[in-house]
Simulated assay, not measured.
Amino acid sequence: MAANEKLSPEFDLYAASYDALLEDPIRNRFAHGTHYFHQRKWVLIQDLLHRAGLNTSSLRWLDVGCGKGELLELAGSHFAWAGGCDPSAAMLDSSTRFEVRQQQSQIELPFDTGSADFVTAVCVYHHVPQAARKLLMNEIKRVLSPGGLACIIEHNPWNPVTRAIVSRCPVDVDAELLTARDAKALMSGCGFAPLFSDYFLYLPERLYSRMASLESLLAKVPLGGQYALLARSPYRASLG
């Protein structure tokens, strides 16, 4: 599909049964339901922003590829403003508390230039064809204020359990996983300055509550189920 082609999103087909399609015996043993995964992402996002010296209460947050808005529902009230966008209108039907808009293509974000201080793309890029990834990254740069922050969270292809789950998940039938190094190169190539990167989701839900400090010690070991990369956008406009 061409990068600027208008979408007939496959996630419209998945929306009604999305949670059921994510079911997997290994995933289910790791955590009960999806809340744990969203909670872990939110904890990590807070930590990354804290390390960058920022308080969420002063930030305008845009969640690109927000889907049903679970992360927005969990974390949106902690920001000065929070909103999201997604190519799938059917997925967005479940998002009512915060402002959400439909993307008309994979590389177009329906928000004004400089309208966000912080942008997340959570498990989005593995659905984006490689030819379109830089275009989307530049669009994220456009909607960010000068010096704003972007965070990519993705499945870690170096984790064999992650690869197994992704390979048999109907929602990820088009997945092209990217490593943390790939994500860093993508952001750097679009003028972003990478700040911090962490691996996480080592421990299942039943252990994390008692051993969270262990995950912190493993954050730089590239074997976690997912990783997060935080980078700063240029302070001056640049060609991408």
Rank of each mutant, 00 (worst) to 15 (best):
S105T: 15
Q46L: 15
M91A: 09
L136I: 11
L54P: 05
A89D: 06
A90R: 09
Q226S: 15
H35N: 09
S197I: 10
L59M: 13
R142S: 08
Q226L: 09
I45V: 10
T162H: 00
M137G: 12
V171H: 01
S8N: 15
L203W: 03
R51L: 13
W42E: 09
V119L: 02
T113W: 05
E23L: 05
H38R: 11
S8G: 08
Q226Y: 04
S58K: 14
H38W: 06
R181D: 10
F11S: 01
P234E: 04
E176G: 03
S77W: 00
F30V: 05
Y202E: 06
F37I: 06
N28A: 13
G84H: 11
G189A: 05
L239Y: 09
P110F: 05
Y208K: 07
L186F: 09
F118P: 00
A132I: 10
H127S: 04
A180T: 10
L109P: 01
A183W: 01
A80M: 10
V122D: 13
I153M: 13
H32D: 12
Q102K: 13
Q106G: 15
L229Q: 03
L49M: 14
D12R: 08
S57L: 09
D47L: 11
H155R: 01
D12G: 02
L239F: 08
L72Y: 03
L223Y: 10
M91E: 11
C123S: 14
N28M: 07
D198V: 06
N55E: 15
R236K: 13
W61R: 06
D12P: 09
N55Y: 11
P110L: 04
L136D: 12
V161C: 02
A90Q: 14
L201C: 03
D174T: 14
S77H: 14
L7P: 01
F98Y: 15
T34I: 08
V119A: 04
G225Y: 04
A80Q: 13
H126M: 12
L230R: 04
P194W: 01
L195E: 13
A185K: 12
L230I: 07
S209N: 01
N4M: 03
Y125R: 03
A75F: 08
D24R: 03
E5V: 12
L109W: 02
V128Q: 08
Y202Q: 04
G76W: 00
K134P: 00
S8D: 15
K68T: 09
Q102W: 00
G224I: 07
S105W: 06
L13E: 08
M1A: 14
F196M: 07
A82T: 04
K184W: 02
R60Q: 02
D47R: 15
A82E: 10
Q39T: 09
Y208I: 01
H127Q: 12
C123R: 10
G224A: 06
